[in-house]
Simulated scan of single mutants.
Amino acid sequence: MKVSFLLTNDDLPDLARGAAVLGTGGGGDPLVGRLLVEQALDEGHRVEVVEADELADSDLVISTAMMGAPTVVIEKLPAGDEAVHSLRRLEAHLGRTAIATIPMECGGLNSMIPLVVAARANIPVVDGDGMGRAFPELQMETFGVYGVPGSPLAVSNEHGYSAVIDTGEDNHQMESFARAVTIRMGGAAYIAEYSMSGADVKRTAIPGTLTLACDLGRTIRLAREAHRDPFDALRGHLAETIYRFGTVLMRGKIVDVERSVADGFTAGVAKIDAFDSDDTMSIHFRNENLVAYRNDEVVAIVPDLITVLDAETAQPITTDGMRYGQRVAVYGISTPEIMRTPEALAVFGPQAFGLAHPWAPLEELSA
């Protein structure tokens, strides 16, 4: 198997920053995951990142991640080996050994957990993922959209307790059962799921998102170092990728955040007053930012990406990190075509979250 590149400690700040941009406010705190990866690298482990095309069609690939409310992870820090334990438990259940792992999403902590697994299990991590952003539920993955069952799934906590959940091809039931176990494990746990072939990965994954996260984080950093507008730099870089389009939806100050943890999710609304007008924006989130209203008009809606960035530095701010008084820029990013099909929108479009407004492309809403 060809190694696309070896990840180093120097790459991690850019990767964490870019993953938080793509994470749309969710996916967990990237700093926690970054520190876990740094620890593994400092101990002499390696993180090999490979392209999906380098997989053999018969290779077994298993997705690994954190599951639960991102807010909980801040208070219940992982030990670092929970997701590896889930991987080994699932391998034992399947009677096969994974050749590689792959992120289930490209946001925050969940861009980092597969890197920890790759390092500690001595397997590569595939440059891609199953969401192209972060979503709050396990069935909301392109792997499942295009026919890969998510179960059997293994879930573990920091005490070494684990369970295997098998719901056949019913990914909604898998999510429901795994969520219940995660809640009983304290609101955050670590999973191995969507065991699939290399051929399935090539067919269903969104390619290159780890590299993209590194590139976006680097783009922001270099723009700041050169005293250039990081938002313009982001827009220019995205235009050359499968995401194609990014734009500032509003600049303003956060004037209110309502947030609660219920049923294993962090949910709420953030309200922002514009700097240059009387306009207001409200962002509704459920772990991740789902819809942005400007003066009660939808300007961006799931599955397109809505991310909140510091107004000066473009540093991403997660949903659990939003606070009154922060000066922010709300940034929209369009999704790749694989996430815009009728099959995909049926699984993670607005109606999947109980939103009444139909999906419309970001580039049209913000025109």
Rank of each mutant, 00 (worst) to 15 (best):
G198T: 00
G264V: 08
M250H: 08
G268K: 07
D200T: 00
I165S: 09
K202I: 01
F231E: 10
A213P: 06
T247Q: 15
T209D: 05
K271A: 11
I206Q: 02
R221C: 02
M185Q: 10
I254P: 13
G268C: 12
N157D: 15
A180G: 09
E193Y: 03
G187H: 03
S197Q: 04
G252T: 07
L216K: 05
V261K: 03
T182Q: 14
G217Q: 03
D229E: 10
D166F: 08
H237W: 15
T167E: 15
V255N: 12
D256T: 01
V257I: 13
L216N: 08
T241R: 05
S197Y: 03
E169A: 09
G186W: 03
G236A: 12
V269N: 12
I254M: 12
A262S: 13
H237N: 03
R228K: 14
F245Q: 12
D256S: 11
N171S: 13
P207Q: 00
V248I: 12
D166P: 09
V255T: 14
F265I: 07
A180I: 11
E193S: 11
F177N: 01
S260I: 07
T247M: 12
I220S: 10
R235A: 15
G187N: 04
A223Y: 01
P207F: 00
D170C: 03
A189K: 02
A223F: 02
Y194P: 06
A189M: 04
A180V: 07
F231A: 09
C214H: 08
E193T: 11
A189I: 09
M174D: 01
A262M: 02
I242L: 14
E175R: 00
M185H: 08
R218I: 00
K202M: 10
I254S: 14
I220H: 10
R184P: 01
T219N: 07
A178I: 12
I242A: 14
G187C: 10
E169L: 02
I206M: 06
I220D: 06
E225L: 10
I206F: 01
M250C: 15
G168T: 13
F245V: 08
A233R: 00
S162F: 14
E240H: 15
L234M: 15
F177H: 13
I242Q: 15
G187L: 05
T209S: 13
F231Q: 08
Y194R: 01
A223S: 09
M250Q: 11
M196D: 05
S162G: 06
T182G: 11
S195P: 15
I220M: 10
L249W: 02
R235V: 08
T241I: 11
H159W: 07
P207T: 01
G198Q: 01
Y243E: 11
M185K: 02
V181N: 00
D232K: 10
L234S: 05
T247E: 14
H159I: 02
T219V: 11
A262W: 00
E169D: 11
Y190R: 04
A180N: 09
I254H: 14
Y243H: 10
T182V: 14
L212C: 06
V257S: 05
M196P: 03
H227Y: 12
R235P: 07
S162K: 02
V248H: 03
R218D: 06
E193V: 13
I165R: 03
R179Q: 08
R235Q: 13
E169Y: 06
T204V: 14
I183K: 15
E158T: 09
A180M: 13
R224F: 04
T204Y: 06
F265G: 10
A178Y: 00
A199N: 10
L249Q: 03
